[in-house]
Write a protein that binds this DNA or RNA. Structure first.
Lengths: 253, 253
DNA sequence: ATAATAAAAGTAATATTGACTTTTATCTCA
DNA sequence: TGAGATAAAAGTCAATATTACTTTTATTAT
């Protein structure tokens, strides 16, 4: 018996200011297992690096981005013996909130790399740019992994490994932290408008944007944001106030 | 280079109805490294079991307790290469909230097993029954692990490995979840009085019990508890109402 | 019975939230 | 230049929640 491989999987989030959508990075695998499936960026931890460092390395390798301030946080660790076909692999899942949305080029092990618009609903992820959507796992964790070994899947409707489950956990974690530590707002960069913050909140609260009243939103979260200026608008309407996060998120790169 | 050992460390919490204190289980190690130091219960993950299962096995082995409802949850995973002296070990930390506080007998690898009263303050854990106290790590994570290799320690004032750091993280996690998912209340068993719930809350909010007004506490957390009866008091004073948690916690044993 | 105790129950001022309306600053296009 | 359109800020007010506090109730000990 050999010790399980330790892999690092990183959920890399960004925000597209053009489409006003939260995005998640997926890679199309070009090797077995799950060849031709979309999957979250994954690497194996090296002998001399921590998992945190490996997660950051993944961002550099997959995005080619050299940012001096980057927030990465642990999501959870996945250890079920049957979570991978073949040799056992333990996955440490991380989340990275990119302050911008750089263009992508597929690297080693991937035939494609793409930002997927993320829209969370109780029954399905709409990870789509007009091309693909993925249903959420509906069962509890034990049931989910019990069916992993026997599942019949297609690359068009499902993700590789237990990555759908990871996304479900990530979405819930982000939702839970929305009111006291909304690190997902780091995807908006150093400053953002209230509308942008509301857009991100609405995504994870599974409600339409206008269900979050701008005025009330500002009052209810005033301890989280500080006004730092205004947009110089090149569009109709009163310029929006720019805010920044009040707390300084832990950065690790 | 060999793959790191995967170890499971479990923070096992309980509540002592006699002393009205939250307690944490520590074992006194009888082998190197950190021989004679107090440490959290730890085991290595087996080839055929998940980390969750290993955490539960740890409860059975260290407590000899066969409970049909037991809540265990993941805390975090610790991967810094220098976190252990000697061969690299990755630790998956779990928390278990025992619904009772059974007597302890030291098992394999331990010369003593003991429930330590837990009192969290910004600068020190008072893990004590009149015998020992442990200072909290005050630095950030990077600094903490940088000094791990060179630290000079004594078994009386410090815990083995990075277990002090784990406890700091656990305390903060419990505090963060107090308002929406206070699983720590599972240590109170199936039913509890408001005073007991306030005692637990006060422990992690680092305030005296009477800073939490009984009447207000009831109103502010009414969505979390349901009244299910009253104590049959053998003491002065009006009998207390008994409550149970409204949500059903995930149990995994 | 009476005092002591502990917790429930009640109260009123204040603060927060939520639904909604009004005002303001900008752009567009005649 | 000015009217209309647009988008966001700012304001309003009733409903709700929170806080600090007092009063009442149910029990035990003497």
């Amino acid at each position: 018996m050999t010790a399980p491989t330790i892999t690092i999987t990183n959920l890399i989030w960004s925000f597209d200011r053009t489409t006003q959508h939260v995005n998640l990075l997926l890679l199309k695998r070009d090797q077995a297992p799950f060849k031709a499936y979309w999957a979250l960026p994954t690497t194996t931890m090296r002998d001399d690096e921590s998992a945190d460092a490996a997660a950051l390395r993944l961002v550099r390798e997959k995005i080619g981005l050299a940012l001096d301030r980057l927030h990465t946080e642990q999501l959870a660790t996945f250890t079920q013996p049957q979570r991978t076909p073949g040799p056992r692999g333990v996955a440490l899942a991380y989340m990275t909130f990119l302050p911008e949305m750089p263009p992508l080029t597929p690297g080693y092990g991937a035939s494609a790399a793409k930002w997927f618009q993320f829209a969370d609903t109780p029954t399905a992820y709409q990870l789509q740019n007009g091309t693909a959507a993925f249903t959420t796992p509906t069962s509890d964790q034990a049931t989910y992994y019990a069916t992993q070994t026997t599942r019949t899947t297609t690359p068009l409707t499902q993700l590789a490994f237990d990555h759908d489950w990871m996304i479900a956990m990530a979405s819930q974690r982000i939702r839970n932290k929305l009111d006291y530590q909304p690190n997902i707002l780091l995807t908006l960069g150093p400053t953002f408008t209230l509308r942008e913050a509301r857009t991100v909140f609405a995504t994870f609260l599974r409600c339409p944007l206008n269900a979050l009243d701008n005025s009330n939103f500002k009052k209810n979260h005033r301890q989280l944001f500080t006004a730092v200026g205004t947009t110089t608008a090149k569009r109709a309407g009163r310029p929006a106030t720019l805010y920044r996060l009040n707390y300084l998120p832990l950065t690790n790169a």
